[in-house]
């Protein structure tokens, strides 16, 4: 029995993928996640210009999950390149591929960021068309419609020198249509899903807790939503899917694979279970496979389809 599995042209030591935005873009932190058992790691999304992000408060665990609006804090694409280069150098001896992640406000800007970030030679490029926390020009419009999602995918694919995975939003009427559109436009894989827009309101003051007022829901509350989205996507397209949303333990990972995920994203579990959450989830996954006679990750895939 092994946790080793294939994803695109990579052979991973574990199906767990550190989700984008979790513990930032620091080479040391991304390496720490890899050492803790992640099979791939995703850097935080990066745009053309530096962004400080939103003022505090930026996150809260309300008991059922986490709501966050960090606000795409990043150093800008040019400054991100050396960080990614260093991260890749540190990850390479561990056999852990690096996924860079990008966002932008226009299709042309997506292409420009892609060109810059590809100088760092990431193994895979995540195209974040779905961050719910940046209003107007960013995110939501692109992931909301098949046409805009496809336009971004096409532009990034033309500019990229590595395979691309497009990160989809859960709050659309028919995620399978979006998935089909981005695959037709050249997406090599799909990451599903980003956080779900939500709010936490303090009843005493009557005010939203986050400075951005709304944020993205992750953690336990997101899992059933993510399972349904991954299920719909896996039935609609043939590309591999990084199933992400609320996976906190081994059983959650098994469910995500059953829904059709090729590999499984882990994010908020870092908060609920610590930086070594991937190691804990790997151990639980191994135990589940042993107890239920599954010899490989591939054998767990798509059982719900």
């Amino acid at each position: 029995m092994t946790l080793s599995c294939d994803f695109l042209n990579f052979t991973l030591k574990s199906p767990l993928v550190l989700a984008s935005g979790i513990i930032g873009t620091s080479p040391a932190l991304l390496t720490r996640a890899a050492r803790a058992g992640a099979g791939m790691v995703t850097a935080k999304s990066c745009g053309l210009a530096p962004r400080a992000g939103h003022p505090n408060p930026v996150a809260v665990d309300w008991g059922g999950g986490v709501l966050n609006a960090i606000g795409l804090t990043n150093p800008g694409a040019d400054a991100e390149v050396p960080l990614l280069v260093e991260t890749r150098a540190r990850l390479s001896p561990l056999g852990v591929p690096l996924i860079a992640s990008i966002f932008a406000g226009t299709v042309a800007e997506f292409a420009a960021v892609t060109e810059i970030i590809c100088r760092a030679k990431p193994d895979l490029l995540e195209v974040n068309i779905s961050c719910p926390n940046v209003r107007d020009d960013f995110g939501t419009p692109f992931a909301a419609l098949p046409e805009t999602a496809a336009a971004v995918t096409d532009a990034v694919k033309r500019a990229a020198t590595c395979p691309i995975t497009v990160k989809l939003a859960p709050n659309v009427p028919d995620i399978a249509r979006i998935a089909a559109a981005v695959v037709a436009a050249g997406a090599d894989a799909i990451t599903a899903i980003n956080t779900m827009p939500g709010m936490v309101i303090d009843p005493v003051s009557g005010k939203p807790f986050l400075s951005n007022r709304t944020g993205g829901i992750s953690g336990a509350a997101l899992k059933p939503i993510a399972l349904r989205c991954v299920f719909d996507i896996a039935r609609a397209v043939d590309v591999p899917v990084i199933g992400t949303g609320g996976v906190c333990n081994g059983r959650d990972a098994v469910e995500m694979l059953a829904a059709g995920a090729t590999v499984v994203g882990v994010g908020t579990a870092i908060h609920t279970r610590g930086v070594d959450a991937p190691a804990k989830i790997n151990a639980e996954l191994t135990q589940f496979m042993a107890q239920n006679n599954f010899g490989s990750i591939a054998a767990l895939r798509g059982r719900a389809l």
Binding site: I22, I23, G24, S26, A28, A59, D61, I70, T73, H271
Partner: peptide, 13 residues
Amino acid sequence: RCGIGLCGSCERG
């Protein structure tokens, strides 16, 4: 910033 291990802002060393 987040205070709960998610954002990476408080990394030291």
